[in-house]
Design a protein around this nucleic acid. Structure first.
Lengths: 144, 144
DNA sequence: GTATATGCAAACCGTTTGCATGGCT
DNA sequence: AGCCATGCAAACGGTTTGCATATAC
């Protein structure tokens, strides 16, 4: 046996992360989670970009599973979906409230520093509703 | 002749609006513009909703033309496209800078009062870029 | 008369789903 | 064993496009 079931080993971040979402650590989920949070940095991916990232014979995950898994991660509260442009969905591993930079020429999406955005006045939610989320996307144009 | 070419008549808003965008006032464009700005109020439409709005035998416009025309209006600077949710594109006749309310349950999009949003601090645009637009979407959840 | 707009149907592209197979607990 | 996840291919829904026809200037 390579690994005893009850050996003492603190769970590695990936498995903890999945466990936190109540998701079983299947091979595919671990592979994808590794690509997403493996280096501890936040990532902004599309299904396609995540599918393409290192999909070798060993780490192969089907595109449908990438879609299903991203949805599962979002439903589990591990990631969030971001909408910046009608054609593609982006997924963000950073769950804290923060604005985004969106490059209009390359369609790249990255975090904008949360500390550098201050909304000092926000419209009241209309009667009978409450604010679930405020999305701020700062669209960037390359300066010539 | 029903109408002389050089008669003195101030252009009606619709034709002025189209002219401002450098667009020829074809029947379809006038019909769609009428649906959009006919009553002077701002509108948030999807291609489908605009297509459905009063498409009787007289005012019939094909769906493809609705799509092409919305794109033409946007390219002409008469409207803007708003992205709130991956599946559909919304188009807004209000060209001023303003936030939006988005009802998560009904997918309805409306203007939020511009005067009630104040951003007192905004992240600097990264080197070599400039901010083209800041999109603020306030997502609403129905309170029970 | 010429350039441009329209309409239809087919193509397109990102995403979801049905269903048979395989894996986790 | 039983439930849940995976993979493929087919379905799907919104949007775009190619091309023949019609319209504005």
């Amino acid at each position: 046996m390579v690994k005893s079931e009850n050996q003492h080993t603190s769970l590695e971040p990936i498995e903890m992360w999945l466990k936190r979402g109540g998701l079983r650590p299947t091979r595919q989920r671990v592979v994808l989670a590794e690509r997403l949070i493996g280096d501890g940095k936040n990532r902004h991916v599309t299904a396609e970009s995540l599918f393409a990232a290192g999909n070798d014979f060993r780490n192969k995950v089907s595109l449908a599973t990438v879609y299903n898994t991203l949805r599962a991660f979002c439903d589990a509260g591990l990631m969030r979906e971001i909408t910046v442009n009608g054609s593609k969905s982006y997924f963000d591993t950073n769950m804290t409230d923060h604005p985004h930079f969106f490059w209009e020429d390359t369609s790249q999406l990255v975090d904008a520093p949360a500390g550098e955005l201050k909304i000092s006045l926000l419209p009241d939610a209309p009667e009978g509703t409450e604010i679930s989320k405020v999305d701020v996307v700062i669209r960037l144009r390359r300066k010539f």
